[in-house]
Amino acid sequence: MYGGVLAYVLAHTPRAIEGTGALGGLGALVLVFALVRANAALVAWPVALLGVAYAIALVVHGSSVDDGAPFVAGGLFLCAELASWSIDERLGIPAERGVVLARAFALCGLATASLAVAALAVALAAAPAGAGLAWTIVGAASAVAVVGVAVALARKAQEAARSRLH
């Protein structure tokens, strides 16, 4: 999955192939290292590196919207999820068929929803909309809101990690 996305990025940017290739290659090495060492905390880094490589490719490529962005998004998301699953399997906890199927269904559902949301985002970009200060403020506010949600989620995740079943 990671290789497929990397190949797409490299094919998309023949002019900056050295930079994107180096970032993607570094990400692949980190991913392999994370899988070999079963270190789930490292999984985010190769995905982030490939995301940066894609961003470079987009900037170098020009102003036209890349129609393959939803697939890149889905690919990166699946790559992260499958890597986490792979590392979980390394713990050696035999799971019932029902547990595996439930996780697979959840992953498929999330991947499909992700694809749809990403496609919607790209499609919305094609829609005619005004430009100017108001849109910039709305965009900035959305970004701040996302950061706020991320912080709140991180806090909740910490609390969940501390909480105990009783």
């Binding site: 962005a69 949301v117 985002a121």
Partner: peptide
């Protein structure tokens, strides 16, 4: 937002959704 590329928003969308 900073680069003005909707593709990056699309790439971030699955993670934000999750």
């Amino acid at each position: 937002l900073a680069l003005g590329r909707v593709e990056l928003v699309a790439v971030a969308a699955p993670f934000a959704l999750a």
